[in-house]
Design a binder for these strands. Structure first.
Length: 293
DNA sequence: CGCCAGGTTAGAG
DNA sequence: CTCTAACATGGC
């Protein structure tokens, strides 16, 4: 079954694809030469799909392992649309960024790059915790072990594909399960607390959907281990608030330092000042700055 | 050994 | 609200 998904003019498959390829340890999707395969759960069914650019600059999706009902097909289109943030109109962002000293080269070189999101809130929060205060490479190693050990697997053509572990699975884990994967005690505890919050019904994507940024952030930060950085990460990647951004992020700081050829990293006050110019587009400014690293 | 990496918490000013 | 120290772990 082939599905064609229309994309806006400001969409560049290449830029998004290069993001998907950024770590060989990524286990939640698998890149081919010019395509990506991913396992998702759609209305209870485990669905493996392949996505590639089609001739007329649209996206083509093939489902590999099953047949979808009309409703499931609709949900899959919804998933891909969310994953690549296809509904955001980038014209106003580009109009602003092409006159900005920090962003102008980046938006030219990565035209059409969109925030590749994480539609699953649990995955987004745990991934952010894994990325806290360590290099990204090691974070991918942690995620790989975690997903391979506790996520569901589908083998297709002799190749395994993985789903992110569910909160129910993770909530019953303890330090004895996670420390051997080289989780720090802190990451282990935070991961368990987040899973617990989902299982207890304190937290869900539905509960936060539609809230103003400040309220959604406040609810996320009630969980121990979810600070400003982690909350904003999830708000950008899962809920797609355009004005969310992780102020304390070391990557943002390094990008600014490099682009402005500073001898030191900018202070938080300096970062805030720079981001005032990006009002309403802080999330996209962040992602393009990350692209520069 | 030192410093840094896509931080968080608790506590003081 | 802002600044600081303590914490934790791998990689170069």
């Amino acid at each position: 079954m082939n599905i064609i998904i229309p994309v806006p003019k400001e969409f560049g498959f290449e830029s998004c694809f290069s993001f998907l390829q950024r770590s060989p340890k990524e286990v939640l999707h698998r890149c081919g030469v010019n395509s990506v395969r991913k396992l998702v759960r759609i209305h209870g069914a485990v669905v493996l799909f392949e996505l590639c650019p089609s001739r007329d600059l649209q996206l083509e999706v093939k489902v590999l392992n099953t047949k979808l009902s009309p409703n499931q097909k609709k949900a899959l289109i919804r998933f891909v649309t969310e994953w690549f943030d296809l509904e955001t109109d980038l014209k106003p962002f580009y109009a602003m960024a092409k006159h900005d000293a920090l962003l102008k080269d980046l938006v030219r070189d990565h035209y059409g790059y969109r925030i590749v999101g994480q539609p699953d809130l649990f995955e987004s929060l745990v991934w952010a915790v894994l990325g806290q205060q360590i290099n990204v490479q090691f974070a991918y190693a942690l995620k790989q072990r975690f997903v391979q050990q506790f996520g569901n697997t589908l083998v297709f053509d002799d190749t395994p594909y993985f789903l992110f572990p569910t909160p129910e699975t993770v909530a019953v884990l303890n330090d004895a399960d996670l420390l051997p994967l080289q989780f720090s005690r802190q990451k282990s505890k935070y991961t368990q607390l987040i899973a617990q919050a989902f299982v207890d019904g304190e937290l869900s994507k539905e509960k936060l959907s539609g809230l103003p940024l400040s309220e959604a952030k406040e609810k996320l930060m009630k969980i121990k281990g979810v600070g400003n950085w982690t909350a904003n990460y999830a708000l950008m990647k899962t809920f797609r608030y355009r004005d969310a951004f992780p102020l304390e992020d070391a990557g943002i700081h390094n990008a600014i330092r490099n682009l402005q050829k500073m001898a030191r990293k900018p202070t938080l006050a300096e970062v805030k000042h720079i981001f005032k110019k990006y009002k309403g587009w802080e999330a996209y400014a962040t992602l393009y700055l990350w692209k520069s690293l």
